[in-house]
């Protein structure tokens, strides 16, 4: 009938054409990123040299950017406006991460001292602490605070440590045998989520230290940071590709956005991602000396 009836042939072609177009649209919608650029956090004057971390103060609704090479912490308001810089009177040595403690003091990772440094802003005092675990010096790297508890990533032993009030380990999260090395971790949904850069896996542990099955990541070259979305997605920052990849909780790629470069939709050697107090996704774009904020 198809051969004989040109109308029928045309109808079939039209039907298939429409079907494939609709499928393509659905596929494109699934793969499209919902994130839209809102603003950038950039310092004043010479700006920031190499920002490496972001702390979002949910209570005060402020952003604190850690500028490692600039040896300073730079604060911004909720609207992204620059507020001030803090250098502890020039005494910060290669700061790498920070959180604000319940008493209002700041806790800063100083790589240059391998110290967790408590900065008492009211009394203008700093106290350096070298953390030790089982007699060994801890190389503090990433720092998180959740539920009043402070967590650090130890780059030497490859563990996540929960610290007590004296900043000494109270609990340790050991990684599975054969794990690679850890690039980042976050505390969310009452779990500790850990990114293994070498194995390209995400491990998670509940409050009792019980692990969940590892999530295998595909489609990333050099993962450096992760962020846990309450809506169920897992975001991974790919430093070498300058991209953010969204994964389902089983590791399936949902979509990705941004590319490597120095333009507005680019990232250049980005270092960290995290959510702010409004659920916006923030990217510490080290190579472009800025923090980009995206909203859904």
């Amino acid at each position: 009938m198809l051969r004989k009836n040109p109308r029928c042939r045309l109808g079939c072609l039209l039907f298939f054409g429409m079907f494939f177009s609709a499928s393509s649209l659905v596929w494109a919608a699934e793969m499209q990123s919902p994130w839209k650029f809102v603003f950038s956090l950039q310092g004043q004057g010479k700006g920031m040299a190499l920002p490496v971390a972001l702390y979002v103060d949910h209570e005060k609704e402020r952003y604190y950017v850690v500028d490692s090479t600039g040896n300073k912490l730079v604060s911004f308001g909720a609207d992204g406006k620059y507020l001030q810089e803090f250098t502890a009177e020039g005494n910060l040595k290669k700061p790498y991460d920070m959180v604000r403690l319940a008493d209002g003091s700041l806790l800063v990772v100083e790589k240059g001292r391998n110290s967790l440094t408590r900065v008492d802003l009211k009394n203008k005092k700093t106290a350096h602490t070298v953390v030790k675990h089982q007699g060994q010096e801890v190389f503090v790297d990433r720092l998180e605070i959740a539920g009043g508890k402070v967590y650090v990533l130890d780059r030497s032993s490859g563990r996540i440590l929960q610290l007590d009030e004296t900043l000494q380990p109270a609990k340790s999260y050991a990684m599975p045998a054969g794990a690679g090395w850890l690039a980042d971790f976050k505390v969310a949904e009452k779990k500790v989520w850990v990114l293994d850069q070498k194995k390209k896996q995400v491990y998670s542990y509940d409050e009792n230290g019980r692990p969940s099955p590892a999530i295998q990541l595909t489609g990333v070259d050099f993962p450096v940071s992760l962020a846990i979305d309450p809506t169920g997605l897992l975001y991974v920052l790919d430093r070498h590709r300058g991209a953010i990849v969204a994964f389902g909780r089983n590791g399936e790629v949902k979509y990705q956005f941004l590319t490597k470069g120095q333009g507005r939709d680019n990232l250049y050697f980005p270092q960290e991602i995290r959510f702010d107090h409004l659920g916006r996704l923030c990217v510490v774009d080290e190579g472009n000396s800025r923090v980009m904020v995206f909203k859904r």
């Binding site: 190499l50 490496v52 490692s68 090479t69 290669k94 790498y96 790589k111 240059g112 001292r113 391998n114 060994q136 010096e137 190389f139 790297d141 990533l153 130890d154 780059r155 030497s156 032993s157 490859g158 563990r159 050991a174 990684m175 599975p176 045998a177 054969g178 794990a179 690679g180 090395w181 850890l182 070498k198």
Partner: peptide, 27 residues
């Protein structure tokens, strides 16, 4: 971990006290 080496190679420890370093956190 790396501490086993850095006890003797203290100079390396200083070099690794940088924002970007190859002090690997692994098992």
């Amino acid at each position: 971990g790396s501490e086993a080496c850095l006890r003797c190679h203290a100079g390396m420890k200083t070099t690794m006290m940088a924002p970007h370093n190859h002090m690997f956190a692994g098992t």
